[in-house]
């Protein structure tokens, strides 16, 4: 028996006013996502167990019982202009499109918009703390933004308002995705790469990180914080002293740690296309 069968039974015999959504019953429409025992699942695809706590999805307003309001998600997606728009004229059929150029967008197209990932995302859970769009809207964006035929100016506009570098890479979204989309590695990371290319200022942190690894072979926390936070690093002085006192950071290494075997190797490997900071 599926969770959906249990819900149908409850609605039939115990609580005729129970509000819940479902349509296809076969993992296609994405309307029946709920939380069962603390985990996002599709009611139509999850086996019922004797002890079940059923809750509505998190991170979206609850309309009634298990029905959530998808408006915050839809607003985000609409603002991304999620369609394909060419900047160059159409070359005619058949259009040259290599598998490797479209493989990430094609993964994103498996999305059934069930909101399981949106409910599981810990950064979205923090509300207005950041401008992070969240996994589900970013997957929608990826469907067109990761398509090489799309107009880069439009992709740029969308990424500008995506807050994408607030993704903590926790893979909670991938864990619950019923469509099995590698959301972090094949959608969010390629989108971050796009952002680094189209909006370099947005990607200061990864670019600084890369240049430190390229010159030192390893990450020096002092150098990283100084380069990324600049004068703002001054507000971290109490922590700096605590860490110095406990021997957690070594300013000497920050000054001279560029002549090791690891540094030489990293210089060789990352010297090509080194992104300036």
């Amino acid at each position: 028996m599926r969770v959906l069968d249990a819900l149908n039974h409850i609605a039939e015999y115990d609580a005729p006013d129970l509000a819940y959504r479902w349509f296809c019953g076969s993992k296609m429409c994405g309307s029946c996502a709920i939380r069962m025992n603390g985990r996002e699942v599709l009611a139509c695809w999850e086996a019922a167990v004797p002890d079940m706590t059923i809750e509505p999805l998190r991170n979206l307003p609850v309309i009634r019982d298990l029905v959530v309001d998808r408006t915050p998600y839809e607003r985000r997606v609409v603002a991304f202009e999620p369609w394909l728009e060419r900047s160059a004229p159409y070359l005619g059929f058949p259009e040259p499109l290599l598998h490797k150029d479209i493989k990430n967008a094609s993964k994103a197209l498996d999305c059934i918009s069930c909101m399981a990932c949106y409910s599981a995302c810990p950064v979205i859970r923090l509300g207005d703390l950041t401008d992070f769009a969240g996994p589900a809207p970013l997957v929608q964006l990826g469907q067109t933004a990761l398509d090489p035929r799309n107009d880069p100016a439009k992709v740029r506009r969308a990424l500008e308002r995506s807050g994408i570098f607030n993704c903590v890479s926790c893979y909670k979204c991938e864990e619950v995705c019923p469509a099995g989309i590698p959301i972090v590695s094949q959608v969010i990371e390629p989108l971050k790469a796009k952002a680094a290319e189209l909006l370099p200022a947005m990607a200061t942190h990864p670019r600084v990180f890369r240049s430190i690894v390229a010159s030192r072979g390893r990450i020096d926390p002092g150098a990283l914080v100084l380069h990324i936070q600049g004068w703002r690093a001054l507000t971290r002085i109490p922590r700096l002293f605590r860490m110095l006192f406990r021997g957690k950071i070594n300013p000497l290494r920050t000054l001279v740690g560029t002549r090791t075997g690891a540094a030489n190797a990293a210089k060789r490997v990352l010297s090509r296309n080194d992104a300036p900071t």
Binding site: A193, R210, R218, T260, A262, V269, L270, N273
Partner: peptide, 26 residues
């Protein structure tokens, strides 16, 4: 492994995938 480098955390893999693969495969 004396000359082993940083694996690039999340940053390198996001913006330079071939650099990420090379550093890790190394």
């Amino acid at each position: 492994l004396e000359s082993a480098t940083c694996t690039g955390a999340r940053e390198l893999r996001a913006i330079d995938s071939i650099g990420f693969y090379t550093l890790n495969v190394r």
